[in-house]
């Protein structure tokens, strides 16, 4: 597509995305005191991340089986308090291993 056709799309897309992120952070400058809202915000990261992970993680590789292998590895390592990088890397490794076994062994 021509660059000058693309440009207005880029501006709309990035503009909406930025406003959604920027407005709450710029407008919410005081410290919230309300206990319910503080509690709500305490749980938000965990609920958002979990909703994004389950069940989507099972569709993140070419087969739910290799994804489950990676997910299982991630759960065990995270439970043992290994850092982000280790958990992410070994979880990819487990999925790769599972795919290799599925493709070449079974």
């Amino acid at each position: 597509m021509k660059f000058f056709d693309f440009l207005p799309y880029l501006i709309v897309c990035a503009g909406v995305t930025y406003l959604v992120r920027m407005l709450p952070m710029v407008l919410m400058r005081g410290k919230i005191k309300n206990r319910f809202i503080l509690s709500f915000l305490h749980y938000i990261p965990y609920s958002v991340l979990t909703v994004m992970t389950v069940p989507a993680i099972f569709y993140s590789t070419s087969s739910p089986i290799s994804a489950a292998a990676g997910f299982g590895a991630a759960l065990v390592l995270a439970f043992m308090d290994k850092g982000l990088l280790k958990v992410a890397a070994i979880s990819c490794g487990a999925a790769l291993l599972a795919e290799l076994i599925m493709n070449y062994v079974i």
Partner: peptide
């Protein structure tokens, strides 16, 4: 996703 698991 592995990272998300490692955080939660």
């Amino acid at each position: 996703y592995g990272m998300f698991v490692a955080i939660v």
